[in-house]
C-alpha cells in the first residue's frame, strides 16, 4: 500500500494549494452557518457573519439554549429586559431521531447483505430476472409509494409507529443496498466459498462466518450512507410519522422552524447546526474505520 510520493516538492506545493482552495470553498457555507448560530439576533439580521472578524462582536450560546429548551424559555436580551419566548424543544426530537435511525440502518443492511449473497452466489430460478428488477427499482422515485403505503399503514395501524417508518426506510433503502453490496460480495474470490461448501457448511453459516466478516468494509460504508440518508430524511418522516411532536424527528422540527420562524435566522442556524452535529460526529468518529475498511477492501481493486 505504500505509494512513492513525487519527489518534486513544488508539485506537492501546487497540489496542496489547489486542495486548500477547494476545501475553503467547500467549508465556507458551514462556517458561515456556525458563526451565525452563535451571534445575537440583531447582528445576524443586520450584518454579514464575516464582519465578526473585523469588529468587536458578542458571541453566546443563547440561540442553542432556546432551540434545545422546553416550551417556555426566558432570557435577558441585549437591552437588559427579561424576555419570555417559546423554545423549540429539539432535545426530544433528538432521541426520536436516534430511535428512527438505528434500526433503519441495521435492518436494511441485514436484509440487503443476505439478498446480495443470494444473488451473487446461489443458483435459483429467476435469479437474473429478480436481480434486474431489484436494480431497476433503484430508479423508482419514492413519492410513487407514499400514498399506497400510507393507505396500507392506516389499515394495519402502523401510522405514526416506529415499526412503520423502519420498514419504509428499509424498503426504500434496499435497492441501493443490494446493488452496492452485490457489487462487493460478487467479487469475493470463488475459492473462499468452495472450500467452505466442500466442508459441508450450510449457506447461513457461510453467510455469518465468511460473507459478513469479509464484507465489513462495504457494509461500513453502506451503513454510514444509510445513516446519513435516514437521519437527514424529511419526506418519509413527514408522511409516515405524522406531525405529532411526540415522535417528530429533528428534520421535521427544523422544517417547522423554517416555516414558523422563517425570519429568525439566529434560531434557524442554531437548529440546523444541532441537526448536523450527530451526522458530523458519526462521520468523523467512524472515519478511521471507514477509510481503513475501504482500503482493506480495495486490495482486489
Amino acid at each position: 500500500m505504500t505509494r512513492v510520493k513525487s519527489k518534486k516538492s513544488n508539485w506537492s506545493l501546487v497540489v496542496n494549494l489547489i486542495l486548500l482552495v477547494l476545501v475553503i470553498v467547500w467549508s465556507i457555507p458551514i462556517i458561515g452557518l456556525f458563526i451565525s448560530s452563535i451571534r445575537p439576533q440583531d447582528n445576524v439580521l443586520s450584518t454579514g457573519w464575516w464582519t465578526i472578524f473585523g469588529e468587536h462582536s458578542e458571541l453566546s450560546l443563547d440561540n442553542y439554549r432556546q432551540v434545545l429548551g422546553g416550551s417556555q424559555y426566558t432570557f435577558v436580551d441585549s437591552a437588559g429586559n427579561t424576555v419570555r419566548a417559546s423554545g423549540d424543544n429539539l432535545s426530544r426530537a433528538f432521541i426520536n431521531s436516534f430511535t428512527v435511525t438505528i434500526p433503519s440502518v441495521i435492518i436494511p443492511i441485514l436484509i440487503a447483505s443476505a439478498a446480495a449473497f443470494g444473488f451473487a452466489w446461489m443458483i435459483f430460478p429467476g435469479r437474473k430476472f429478480f436481480f434486474t428488477t431489484v436494480v431497476a427499482l433503484l430508479v423508482v422515485p419514492l413519492q410513487i409509494a407514499l400514498i399506497p403505503i400510507l393507505r396500507d399503514y392506516q389499515s394495519l395501524g402502523l401510522t405514526g409507529s416506529y415499526l412503520g417508518i423502519w420498514l419504509a426506510h428499509t424498503g426504500f433503502g434496499l435497492p441501493l443496498g443490494i446493488y452496492l453490496l452485490y457489487n462487493y460480495i460478487s467479487t469475493i474470490p470463488r475459492d473462499v466459498f468452495e472450500s467452505a461448501f466442500l466442508d459441508g457448511a450450510r449457506p447461513m453459516v457461510v453467510f455469518n462466518r465468511l460473507v459478513l466478516p469479509l464484507s465489513v468494509p462495504a457494509i461500513a460504508s453502506l451503513a454510514i450512507f444509510q445513516f446519513l440518508w435516514v437521519w437527514n430524511d424529511l419526506l418519509v418522516a413527514l408522511v409516515f410519522l405524522g406531525g405529532t411532536s411526540d415522535v417528530a424527528v429533528l428534520t421535521q422540527r427544523l422544517a417547522n422552524m423554517v416555516g414558523s420562524r422563517g425570519q429568525d435566522w439566529h434560531l434557524l442556524t442554531a437548529g440546523a447546526f444541532v441537526a448536523m452535529i450527530v451526522p458530523l460526529a458519526v462521520f468523523f468518529g467512524l472515519q478511521r474505520y471507514f477509510v481503513q475498511g475501504l482500503m482493506a477492501g480495495s486490495v482486489k481493486g
Partner: peptide, 9 residues
C-alpha cells in the same frame, strides 16, 4: 462534510 447535512439544513 456536506454529505452529513440534511437537505433541510
Amino acid at each position: 462534510m456536506p454529505m452529513a447535512i440534511s437537505f433541510v439544513g
